[in-house]
Design a protein around this nucleic acid. Structure first.
Length: 267
DNA sequence: ATGGCGAGCAGGGCTCGA
């Protein structure tokens, strides 16, 4: 099985990229972030026509997330959440469901984690509170749904380590890399979660986001901030994790590109 | 040193992202 995450920076602008990518990469699950669409404008029909069911929650202009599941896989979402139930929030950043799979039950959480804007800003305070609440929720899920693995996939807006930053000196202690942000990510890892990408040997300087400005992609001026975390019970089943730079090379690309994880026997 | 691009909303020039 495969699960992917992709911040599309407007699903209205990127719908064709998503459909084309799914046709070439028929993953079982796809988490989308920054759909930037209200629910009445969500392209549910086009996604269903592509063979996927979808759960989504949006708002005008900002945020918005979706969770696609492949119909051929026979998946049925259970225990759906359009929010972290422990964190009251008007911003639409979380979508989650539990699925039975041949490799056992999995709860998928698709997340558009806050950006934080600048260290010590109001948005930064919100970001850290948001991560603390996510940690609490996952701890609760581990108690309430024992035997169900958890995959937390999305735009984390945190580069886990300097190896995930094109120019660590320039970014040092700034937003997306600051110590409190990395501690917030570590709080999730301390629950027994693992950054799937780092379970495998990877090429250095392999990023998931590149600045639109200053030829960021051509210069590989990027960050790895799109992550898939998997719980201990899933870790032995994970067979691959990679970043697909292909969509970043298209006309009018998202500034982020998909990250994919593969797990389960006969994946 | 700064801003550089892109999207949304709205019909100009902001905000926001990372």
């Amino acid at each position: 099985m495969q699960l992917a995450t992709w911040n599309v920076n407007s699903l209205k602008m990127r719908l064709q990229h998503v459909l084309d990518w799914l046709a070439a990469n028929p993953v079982d699950f796809l988490c989308l972030q920054e759909t930037k669409l209200t629910d009445d404008k969500f392209p549910q029909e086009a996604i269903e026509a592509a063979g996927y069911g979808v759960i989504f929650t949006g708002q005008p202009t900002y945020n918005g997330v979706a969770l696609l599941y492949r119909r051929e896989g026979g998946y049925t979402p259970e225990g759906v959440h359009l929010d972290n139930p422990l964190f009251e929030d008007a911003q639409r950043r979380v979508v989650s469901a539990r699925f039975g799979t041949p490799a056992g039950p999995v709860r998928v959480i698709g997340a558009y984690c806050p950006n934080g804007q600048a260290v010590d800003s109001d948005k930064y305070v919100y970001k850290l509170a948001w991560f603390a609440a996510m940690q609490q929720w996952i701890r609760q899920l581990q108690q309430e749904e024992p035997g169900t693995a958890i995959m937390l996939a999305g735009d984390f807006n945190i580069a886990p380590a300097d190896a995930d930053v094109h120019d660590p000196e320039k970014w040092a202690d700034g937003i997306l890399v600051s110590k409190p942000e990395r501690a917030a990510l570590q709080g999730l890892l301390d629950l027994g979660m693992h950054d799937a990408f780092r379970l495998f040997e990877q090429e250095p300087k392999f990023f998931s986001w590149w600045d639109y400005r200053m030829l960021g992609f051509r210069r590989n001026a990027g960050l790895r901030i799109d992550l898939i975390l998997v719980t201990d019970d899933l870790k032995p089943q994970v067979t691959r994790c990679w970043i697909d730079k292909g969509p970043r090379k298209l006309e009018k690309p998202s500034d982020h590109t998909p990250v994919v994880v593969e797990w389960g026997a006969g994946a």
